[in-house]
Design a protein around this nucleic acid. Structure first.
Length: 304
DNA sequence: CACTTGACCTGTCCGC
DNA sequence: TGCGGACAGGTCAAGT
């Protein structure tokens, strides 16, 4: 659920409040959420200072600096993870109680809070995760290229290098033989969801991008023409950028770093979560099918 | 080897 | 109202 736009909104929110603050304490209440956490890890974290928050695909990279070296705290939210910041209870940023009144979460920590960071100004950072699929991991910043997950991530759709040609090359995969790649029977939706080909797209933005591009998600990669890749490349960028503007998508429990919901699904989504409703383009009902193991929303009339 | 399916979890929603 | 079961979907391991 947190896909690229949601993670980007969180990144920006954290980047506005964390840099310069030092970590004075960490509590790991659920080992599964931070499987490599031990005394050594704790020693490396406590006393370190937040530098900046980066993003790669759906992964947050929180850069810390200790006296010894720079560390990277990797955070993957998977399905239901949240990273929520709370200012000092005296009220930071004008927020009484340290958080905005519209915040969907209050009373932290709660039963889904698995990791708590205490900061030197009295603020806190909470990692919450209903389904415990998300994780934290600490590595030396210099080792960042060796992280298995990070290392294999595909192209970044918001980078300048994301052209339609790059999209085509990424989706077709690493097959050395171009003829073989061209013959791929894989559906375009399954390829969009493969983080090793393109990073950051999940179920919501796969469906929305394909609708915007007018492409049936069941189409095979082999069937896509240059025009399809051109339209899909533009559609992906437009969907992701619009969602970042809207604060992301909240379909179940996504909230940003201040506990606020995202408005993309209400304001701009055309098909996701709208089966039975009228297609905004042609008025025929949106249908929902199962594809690549996922619920898939489309307009049978507009997407071909 | 390329691709698909099941497991990991827990909360919500639907029908009976 | 309670209860069983389907469903949600990111990623990895196991299966085809």
């Amino acid at each position: 659920m947190p896909e690229l736009p949601e993670v980007e909104v969180i990144r920006r929110g954290l980047n506005a409040v964390l840099p310069g603050k030092a970590i004075t304490g960490i509590e790991v209440l659920e080992q599964r959420s931070f499987p490599t956490f031990d005394l050594e890890t704790e020693k490396r974290i406590i006393g370190s200072v937040f530098q900046e928050v980066r993003r790669r695909g759906k992964l947050l990279i929180i850069v810390l600096k200790s006296s010894a070296r720079e560390e990277a705290l990797l955070v993957h939210l998977r399905m239901t993870g949240q990273l929520v910041y709370r200012g000092p209870s005296t009220g930071q940023g004008g927020f009484a109680g340290g958080y905005p009144s519209q915040s969907l979460v209050s009373g932290l920590p709660d039963k889904h809070t698995h990791v708590v960071f205490s900061l030197d100004d009295g603020s806190r950072l909470y990692f919450n995760d209903q389904r415990k699929f998300g994780y934290l991991k600490l590595i030396a910043l210099s080792d960042i290229d060796q992280d298995d997950f990070l290392h294999h991530l595909g192209i970044e759709p918001l980078d300048g290098s994301f052209t339609w040609q790059a999209l085509r090359a990424a989706l077709q995969g690493k097959a050395k033989n171009p003829a073989q790649a061209k013959a791929s029977p894989m559906s375009v939706k399954a390829a969009l969801l493969d983080q090793k080909r393109i990073a950051g797209i999940g179920n919501i933005y796969a469906d929305e991008s394909l609708f915007r591009a007018g492409i049936d998600p069941r189409r095979s990669l082999a069937s896509l023409k240059v025009g399809d890749y051109r339209r899909l490349q533009a559609a992906i960028r437009e969907c992701l950028n619009q969602s970042i503007i809207d604060g992301g998508s909240t379909s179940r429990n996504y909230v940003d770093s201040f506990g606020l919901r995202g408005e993309y699904l209400d304001l701009h989504a055309a098909v996701y979560g709208r089966s039975g409703q009228a297609c905004p383009r042609c008025g025929k009902p949106i249908t929902k099918i199962r594809l690549a193991g996922r619920g898939t929303h489309l307009c049978e009339h507009c997407q071909r």
